[in-house]
Each structure stands twice: as structure tokens, then as C-alpha cells.
Design a protein around this nucleic acid. Sequence first.
DNA 1: GAAACTTATACTTAAAATGAGCATATATAG
DNA 2: CTATATATGCTCATTTTAAGTATAAGTTTC
Lengths: 340, 340
Amino acid sequence: MNTRSSDRGASSARGPAGVVVIELSAAIVTVTDESPKILLVRPPDMAPRAGLPYGPFDPTGHRTLEEGLRTWVQEQTDLHLGYVEQLYTFGDRFRDPQERAGGPRPVSVGYLALVRQTALKDAGESSWGDWYRYFPWEDWRDGAPTIIDSLIAPRMAKWTDDAKTKPDRNRRRERVNLAFAFAGGSWDNERVLDRYELLYEAGLVFEATLDARLEVASDLTSVHGHTGAALTKDHRRILATAMGRLRAKIKYRPVIFELMAPTFTLFQLQRAVEALSGGRLHKQNFRRLVAHEGLVEPTGHISSQTGGRPAELFRFRREVVHERPAPGLRVPVKVSKRTG
Amino acid sequence: MNTRSSDRGASSARGPAGVVVIELSAAIVTVTDESPKILLVRPPDMAPRAGLPYGPFDPTGHRTLEEGLRTWVQEQTDLHLGYVEQLYTFGDRFRDPQERAGGPRPVSVGYLALVRQTALKDAGESSWGDWYRYFPWEDWRDGAPTIIDSLIAPRMAKWTDDAKTKPDRNRRRERVNLAFAFAGGSWDNERVLDRYELLYEAGLVFEATLDARLEVASDLTSVHGHTGAALTKDHRRILATAMGRLRAKIKYRPVIFELMAPTFTLFQLQRAVEALSGGRLHKQNFRRLVAHEGLVEPTGHISSQTGGRPAELFRFRREVVHERPAPGLRVPVKVSKRTG
DNA sequence: GAAACTTATACTTAAAATGAGCATATATAG
DNA sequence: CTATATATGCTCATTTTAAGTATAAGTTTC
């Protein structure tokens, strides 16, 4: 106890210690009318799967972590980032298969960045993809995704039963029920990471087959075609973190406007929120909410691109951040009850 | 553009890269009836100031970052951590003076940990201190802290004026007004980090004098005795992050119960929330809220330690996490208006 | 042991926010 | 003109919230 100077392996408490390489990765999000998109870079050379833009942190060249990230993104995608927010730092052993092959221990700092759709241009090696391609079970806009009842529920039930001890089984059941709202609970659209991690641990997503710690049963490889597209390294995990964070954040900070054009109709705004949240909103109440929170102000101009009655164009009211402590779209996301 | 293989200094995009040492630091929080406390370790040997428990991440010994942290804390403080949550990863250049002296570039991953007051025991080199000792301007339980009007307001106004360009001045004014609620806004008790960073940039906290990038005017050193106690390295910044995160989190997750004894009176619960939030709550409404959210259930037992009418003892209802999406104490923290 | 004080808890009331929907306006497509 | 799409104003019942009043049941003081 209190052996501050004790040695553990190669490192002593505050002396020289193990050395690692830090990767900076960015989930860069934009949104077109109906679809939230993330920027992916083509697999370089050997790598089989696409991934997020990333690069190593350079302690001599980069003044801050965030500056390092901005530099890499600019170099790799020719994109200048506006809003950037740090998400999480991952450092689990053996989630990157290259590590087993003698590679260095990767520690990756994930970031969320938001850019307007005007910035949307597929530069050479990068392209935009709908984020639900990687998380099909997260899109509840047209009701409960069928994959949940048809595939996820039974497989997760089996995984729960497979636990060796009874307390272990109970823990698994608890986690599964909470994350997927199986036991009568309600779907929490922010628990994106919880759900991905469960699917990973149960071997239901492709990346799990590369994890040295997991034994993925061979009959599970057939499901990987249905549980979304895989990304390189732990990039799908970072993306899950980004989705959860963004879904939470739009409720109490006006970040949604980082994704909108300078002027927009209220319905466009609603569609953007729905795209990110993965659920539907009550139209009349949404506009009342937006107006009442003072988040937008009318421009006086009219859009006739609506396909129906023309809509008034609004702009973001920047002053709102001074008026209320947590200005955001505290939207009650309607998520139609799962069938069954 | 798209020069993925371009060299920047010593590192190329995905080749060998700069190497850093990762520090794992923990803000370990507990709460006694009226005071939120954090665990500090005595300055070891040369270091002049106390700091949080920390140690380097060992990529060969530690399976995950969090496991590394738990190991170091256990070794240094003999404390077993329950609830642990990652906060943020800091990597700014020159915030640690040792770096100028040729030391390695520090990257520190900060954590928040919660322990019950029963775990409260001063082990040899570690001790518990009220967190408002380091942030006197954050405690609004007895009204607005006088230091805000007497010292912070005028000094921050001066700092704002000192900006060289007009847009810079505007940016500073905006940040200051938002963080300290000067321009009629309301005090947001979660913006702890924003406020600390502003005081730091303005040279009003001691740590700023050690920053190679800042020129702290000599007349400012006299204020450092009033702007809270300093900690080593960037540990006060990590603590600020922890405070802000915890104040936010009690509103939508039942983390407060990580700090309570197994049974407690509703007033004890209220005092704990007030201690963390730095404001007062309406007693009758608080108990209605807690009951209505289903966060607690009566035990049937009575506490006679109240000093008045005996109170019923309650316990945390764990089932609540299954019943509602974001169970927490969505408390409206009363923060008496600043005088003037 | 009565008065003063402390804390606990039940209940009231007005205002505000919320959830769901009806009704009407103004476009386009055919 | 009709059908259909979106836009927008408004109602209404319900719930939530903020801020009390009122009363209960102990301890402390003298």
C-alpha cells in the first residue's frame, strides 16, 4: 500500500515509462435533407476497409491535440473544419489486429467535427456515406428497424445464455435489455456506443473477428453481412461515440446550426434533427419549440422549393446563447414502438 | 491537397511518428454532508504543490487506460474505485513547465471517480480537500461569491480591453460575459472549465505564471492568493473538467447515489446535490421531484439524527434506469442573483 | 415543562410547458 | 378542378414546475 515507488513492469510511477503512439481520428459529420453523412477515406494500399481520416499526433509539430487533428484532416481531405469537439480516448489492447503482429500499442483520440453540406465534395480519396450504413439498427424514422427483432434479439438472447456464471448472465441480460429496450423499456437514441459494444462482444459485428480476445463462433460470420458495414481499426466505435454525443448535444446546445445553411426553413431544420436523432418529430410542436426557445428568427424571405406552400426562411439567432443556460432542441424524439 | 504521404516534421502520415508519454490522472470525488471533496496527494520530493493521484500509462502492463488508472490509484492511495468515467485528454504544449526544461511532451487523460464517504480515510500521503478551496467562485450556496464582483469582474474587464484588435476584444468580451454571466445572463454552474480557462488566460490564477506562452503582468501575482489554491501540472484544469461534468451528469444519470450511503434521508440527498451543484434547492419541490422520478424508495426505517423531526430513510431504486431514459435529479439550481 | 427552534412532510395554487390534434393556407402535379 | 404536398395558426387537456402555506414531530434553552 502506498508504494508509490514500486515498479510495475517496465515503468515506475513517475520515472520513465512505456511509450505509445497517439492517433487522432475524426468523425466528420454533415447532413443533407434526409441523411446524416460522415466522411470516409478510401482504404490506403493494404488496408481492406475504409475508415475515418486520421493521423498520428506529432508532439514536436502540433501545438495541441486538436490542432494536430485539424492539420491531418486538412491534408487528407482538403476540408477546413469549423466545429470540433473531443469525444473519447481509446486505448484497449488488441482491438487493432496489427498490434498482435508486433505493432505499437495504439491509443486513439476520437473527435467529432461538424461541417455544412456546402462543404460536401468528394475529394479524391474521401467520400461521404450515410451513417446508418454502419448502424442500421439506429434508424427508427420509419419505425423499428426489422433487424432488431429478426436478428439482434435472438442472437443477443443466445449470447446472454452463453455466459458461464449466473451473475454474469444477469449482467449481460441487464445490459442487453437496457441498451435495446427489450424488457419494456424505451429506446434511448443516445446509447449508440452501448449497443455497438454489446454487438461487438457478442461477435455480431465483423470487427469482433479481428479481436484477439474474442472467440467468434463460425456460425456468426453469416450475420456480419446484415449488421452494417465494417470500418478499419476501431473507427466504427469512434463513430458510435460521435453519434451518441451528437444526439445528446443537439438537445442542449445549438450545434445543429453548424450543419445548416445560413438560412433554412423550419421543416429543413426538423428534417436535419430527425436525421441525426433517428426518429420523427411532431411538426407543429417542433416549430413552437424552436420559436419559443428563441433559437431562430425570420429573415422575411420565402423559399419556394418546398413542393407545397412556400415556407419562410429563418436564420439562427446567435444571441440565444446569452439568454438561456442550455439552448437546444429539447426534442421528444418519437420512436414508434417496436412491433411485438 | 490530399498529400497523405507528405512529411510534417519528424512524422509521416501513417509511418513512424512522434512518441509521447501518457499520464493518467484521477479527480476522485466524495461528498460529506455539506462539502464536496477531492483526493489529493502530497507533493512528492521536489514538487511544490499538491496534485491529483496520477501515473504513466504502461502499454505493456495495462490492458486498458482505465485499468491503468485504477492500478495507480490503488497503489498511491490504497483506495478501490467504483464509478470511473473518462473526462478529457489534454495535450497542450508548455502547460507543464518541466517540458521547457527538456522534459517529454505530456499528454494527460483525466478521469472522474466517485467514492462513498465511508471510504474517507487520510492515508499517509493523500488527503481530502474541499473542492471550493480551488474554485472559490464556484460556490453560490450562500449567494454570489464576493470575489466575483470585487476581483474577477474588474480584472476580466481589463483583460478584455487589453486585447490588441477589435475582433479579439469582442471575442474576449463575449466569452467573459457568457462564462461569468456579466451581461445579464444567468450563471451556468456547468461552465467550470470555461471560467477557469479564462482566469488562466488572463493570468489570474497562479498556474498561468508557469506557462511559457503567457506573459503574466507582475501586478497580477498579488491576486493569486485570492483565486484559489494552485495544483501541480494541469491538475486544476482536470478538476475543473470533473466538476463541470459531474454537475451536468447528476441531472440525467443517478450518479449521485454513488456518493451516498446505502440509506439516507431526503435532506441528506439534497445537501449532497447542493454541495456539488454549488446552489440551493427548494426543499419541498426537491422531495416531490425525487419521489416522482422514482429514484428512491422508503426503507421503513427512521433516522433520528436530524436535529429536528426524525426523517424517513430511503434507498436508491436501481430499477429506475430501466423505467425512464434519463433518470436523474433534473434540479433547478437556485443561484441567488449577483448583487449590483 | 413551556417556548423557541429545527427539520420533515403534506398540500395548494398559479403559471408554464407538453403532447396531440384540428383547421386552414398556398403551393405543385395531372 | 382535384388530389396532394407542405406551411402555419390555433385549441385543449394534461402534466410539470415554481413558490409557497400549513402542519407534524422531534431537540434545545431556560
